[in-house]
Amino acid sequence: MSAGSAGVSAYPGAGSYGAGPVSTSDGGTPGGTVQQVVESFQVPVTPVITAPVSGEAASSTRPRIEGTAGTNGPVVHLVVDGREIGAAVPGSDGRFTYDPTTPLAAGAHDVIAWADSLGVASKSSTPVRFSTPAVALADGGVVQMAVLVVPSNGDTVSPTPLFAGTAANGVSVGVVIDEGPDNIVPLDLLGRFRFQVPGSAPLSVGTHKVTVHAHNEAGDDGPYSDVVGFEVVVPGGDGGTDGGTDAGPVDPAMPMVVVPAEGATVDPTFSFVGVALPGTSVLLELDGKALATATADDEGVFRHVLTADKALATGAHKVVAQVVTEEGEAGLRSPEVGFQVRGPTDLDVGCGCGAAPAGMISVWALVGLGALARRRRSRN
């Protein structure tokens, strides 16, 4: 059998009729049949969005999108604010519906739809502008964006990582890994949350992403945080990852400055706080000059309090923490942290400085202080 001439339509009169009998070596014609298949095709019908209607104020942050399109098997793509959020297949009557899986931020949005059939796209529908509400609390406040503190973007973690952070308000937080289901955890009195991936459901080796959001009393979703990307690795027998010989991108003996955070604005007097291996002596360098030496306690936390006579000048500063060995030699250095010192006329509320009271010496306490500062800002 011959399948016809390559690249030539099988439409009658176009030069090829698809499969047909061919001659045998003795000049005869073998047995067989010729079947011509006719399949109609047209450019997909331009969809029409029927809900929400233009100017509508939706009552939900996940408003159902409805509309009409063709009935010849198209897939309708829904695009909100220039980003595709999902797709739907119309029924036999040409109607389609789509319920967003991720809540939309409070405010105005534009939605359009376009259809795709056999790789051919329709024209885009007429844009429809609508608005979604903010997620309210029982006391009349508005649920604010939660902040993921651990892990940071680009971190490497084990298959059962800890996700931790803070929320300025709300009653619980949803941790969403790789666009999966909500892992809902409560907030404590300081606005902190934590979720540990269980050993019974470890994450696969490779790259993943996570985002978090707070809930109100009714369980409605507040705004989602920025996406954080991280990588899951499995330690090898030599201390490296995936059986390799490297020890990973970050040496655990490297000190880290926790307070102030990169880009933070602080008062002229505050506490520098960081983490290192317990018992490690750490030299703090401020703007390239030695400031003080501190020792990490049993929990691996070190700090240095700036008193009034050592108050920093208004403006930009940089701090680095460096290990000092028992022999007095310079060891590993932390990444440089840049921060700003506010002047006496600045009206920014909250210190971001973490001058931790006695006893609050763990990293979790520092996270709690950040939550309290955000709560204070939200009330002003």
Rank of each mutant, 00 (worst) to 15 (best):
A10C: 14
V89K: 12
I49A: 05
T132W: 01
P151Q: 10
A88G: 03
A264V: 11
V323G: 01
G31L: 10
E66W: 04
S200P: 02
Y17R: 11
P12K: 13
G229A: 12
D297Q: 12
G67M: 04
V210L: 10
P63T: 01
A201G: 02
P52F: 06
A14W: 06
R192W: 04
P186A: 03
P127M: 09
V135Q: 03
A308Q: 02
G328Y: 04
D93L: 08
E179R: 15
G206Q: 09
M256D: 06
V147A: 07
S225Y: 05
G4H: 10
S378F: 05
T68S: 08
V89D: 00
G165I: 08
T29I: 13
M256R: 15
V319P: 03
G263V: 09
G94V: 13
E66K: 08
R377H: 04
L306M: 04
R333C: 01
L148Q: 07
D242W: 02
T265S: 14
P12Q: 12
S362P: 02
V341K: 02
R129L: 05
P235Q: 11
E327N: 11
D251K: 08
V305L: 05
E285P: 01
S225V: 06
T50D: 05
T71R: 14
T307P: 01
T156W: 14
F230K: 06
D93V: 06
P12R: 13
S172E: 00
E39G: 01
V37H: 14
P103I: 06
A201Q: 15
V53G: 07
S25E: 07
L190N: 12
V176I: 15
V173I: 12
W364S: 12
H215E: 02
L162N: 09
V305G: 02
F272E: 03
V38W: 15
G170K: 02
T293W: 00
T166A: 04
S158N: 12
V367T: 11
H213K: 13
P249V: 11
G86I: 10
L306K: 00
D116E: 15
S225N: 04
G15W: 08
A218Y: 06
P127K: 12
G300E: 10
V111P: 00
G331S: 00
A296E: 04
A371Y: 09
P260Y: 02
R192F: 03
V232W: 11
V48P: 01
R333A: 09
P30S: 10
I184Y: 00
V233Q: 15
V147F: 09
Q196M: 09
A313D: 07
D110L: 02
G119K: 13
A115M: 07
R95F: 07
D348I: 13
T97M: 10
V212F: 04
E179F: 09
T97C: 08
P90R: 07
T156Y: 11
